[in-house]
């Protein structure tokens, strides 16, 4: 997805200036270029890992930093014993419940505020006011209100994801080109059609940005929610590991957090590629 702004599009000037190159050869060249690119990107990661391994083996990183090999071994143990899967399952369920509640609320509020003036007047001011409060500060209150069980954890995640989605749905809808709405109306499209054919597709790119932000907030909320009073979940895993000074297991859980974030980001990107296929017209014909 990253494009080097300063470089001209790969291949374009060369083939424009030189003699025409057969399509098959051009494709092969493009393929080998993209392979080289992937290798170049991976090499940075490999260098970091190698330096880490060398530093840990040489004892330069102190006794509390495990080497990558030790982390992998710890991961293997946690997977084998089933501990990782069981706790991951608990955490995923919390996130899914929180997302289900929070995303629906964010979407409904955003649609209400974006589509109707009355909705905006009723919804926007209170939501904006509450948004100023960092939702993680609600942890103590939620523990008092909902106890230390699942409810307070799921609530924290739900509250966290409402706002990024709400704001992006609202602004996405308001950002739709008024002229497109007018021209669709003059084409005889009714009120419902305007919403489904013009407003929502027009707001979709922004809504998906909101979804991405919301998923990031969900993982962050999970980390915080599982830090206190937990008896299951990957947060519990990391707490246990900390108590027994098992830094290798701490690292495993950190890597799991990173992978979870990466996985959800890839998921949203895949959705974007499908749902926003019309925008690819801008890049490749």
């Amino acid at each position: 997805m990253s494009v080097d702004v300063l470089d001209p599009p790969a291949g374009a000037p060369a083939s424009a200036a030189g003699p025409p190159v057969p399509a098959a050869r051009r494709r092969a060249a493009a393929r080998s270029r993209s392979l080289a690119r992937t290798a170049r990107r991976l090499s940075g990661l490999v260098i970091v890992l190698a330096a880490w391994q060398a530093g840990a083996s040489a004892g330069l990183l102190g006794s509390t930093t495990p080497s990558p090999a030790q982390v992998v071994a710890a991961a293997g143990r946690l997977v084998e014993s089933g501990e990782l899967a069981a706790n991951l399952g608990v955490s995923l369920l919390r996130v899914l419940k929180g997302l289900a509640i929070g995303l629906s609320a964010g979407l409904v509020l955003g649609l209400a505020a974006g589509l109707a003036r009355l909705g905006e007047d009723l919804v926007d001011a209170p939501v904006q006011a509450v948004r100023m409060l960092p939702h993680l500060a609600l942890v103590p209150l939620f523990i008092i209100w909902f106890g230390i069980g699942e409810t307070s954890k799921v609530s924290l995640i739900a509250v966290g994801v409402v706002f990024p989605l709400y704001i992006n749905v609202f602004h996405g809808i308001r950002g739709v080109d008024e002229r497109l709405v007018e021209s669709a109306r003059s084409c005889g499209v009714g009120r419902f059609g305007l919403i489904t054919k013009v407003v929502l597709p027009g707001a979709l790119p922004q809504i998906l940005v909101g979804l991405r932000q919301a998923l990031g907030v969900a993982w962050l909320s999970l980390v915080v929610a599982e830090q206190s009073a937990t008896s299951a979940g990957i947060g519990y895993l990391i707490n246990q590991a900390t108590q027994f000074m098992r830094t290798d297991e701490v690292f495993v859980v950190l890597v799991v957090y990173a992978l979870l974030g990466l996985a959800t980001d890839l998921l949203v990107r895949a959705v974007e590629r499908r749902a926003l296929a019309w925008r690819r017209g801008l890049v490749a014909r």
Partner: peptide, 24 residues
């Protein structure tokens, strides 16, 4: 009645033919 504006005002997320019959 039908209107054509200075800008084409096609919906970028709908295929060309769907734009043509929009609202028909």
């Amino acid at each position: 009645k039908a209107v054509v504006y200075q800008e084409h005002r096609l919906l970028p997320w709908a295929r060309v033919w769907k734009n043509v019959v929009l609202g028909v």
